[in-house]
Write a protein that binds this DNA or RNA. Structure first.
Length: 208
DNA sequence: TATAAGATTATCT
DNA sequence: GATAATCTTATAT
């Protein structure tokens, strides 16, 4: 309490400007490593540092936009910096950032966060205690931040219920690998992760 | 209308 | 390491 009640919300984490987001989808996926995802909930603010992403690019058979726009994936075709949220395996919501120009069905999947603010809220949302398990994995981070389809299409370059922001700290070395959990176009090196982070899911993470 | 696949996770051995 | 859970979506019939 105390300080958190005094600090102005709007000045804490100014949103990333759309103009600073790289046009190229793979470049955006790399750029987002070390940035913040901020979620405002009725109980308070939840945020985390992005430590793992995947790019789904033009001509990518693994991408949801590959076969054109559908009712589910239409947000992928928005101008870069918008949320595309979908339900995977009937279980887990996935948070993506739309990329490239309007009309291009590409985006970046946010795969893992290092929890920063609102960790008590994340624990309640997830039903687990272990810090490392709160947001390690795309479905887990969506649950921790209570992200669902109601946020689909949201502009992440504006402060609101969910947005992207800069972090003051330095970003460490970034690793690159094949993507996780796909079968088509599986050989492309479009996964990016913070090498030094124990909050990365899959290969590359520490303390496994 | 039917069917198979899916950008996952939790739980088991 | 293997598998069940769970349900929406896309595609075919």
């Amino acid at each position: 309490m105390g300080r958190a009640d005094i600090v102005s919300h709007s000045d804490d984490h100014p949103p990333l400007a759309r103009e600073e987001l790289p046009d190229d989808t793979a470049a955006l996926a790399r750029y987002l490593i070390g940035k913040l995802v901020v979620r405002d909930l009725p109980e308070g603010r939840v945020s985390g540092r992005i430590v793992e992403t995947e790019a789904y690019v033009v001509g990518d058979a693994a991408g949801h936009g590959f076969r054109g726009m559908t009712p589910r994936n239409r947000s992928l075709f928005l101008e870069r910096g918008h949320a595309y949220v979908y339900l995977a395996y009937g279980i887990s919501f996935m948070l993506n950032v739309s990329s490239d120009t309007q009309g291009t069905g590409t985006g970046v999947l946010i795969r893992a966060l290092e929890p920063l603010e609102g960790i008590a809220i994340m624990r309640l949302n997830r039903g687990v205690e272990r810090l490392r398990d709160l947001a390690r994995g795309p479905g887990r981070l969506a649950a921790a931040l209570r992200i669902d389809r109601s946020l689909d299409g949201l502009d992440l370059c504006r402060e609101g219920p969910l947005w992207l922001a800069r972090d003051g700290t330095e970003t460490g070395a970034i690793g690159q690998s094949i993507r996780i959990g796909i079968s088509k176009d599986a050989e492309r090196l479009l996964r990016f992760y913070l090498k030094a982070s124990p909050f990365v899911s899959g290969p590359g993470s520490l303390n496994r």
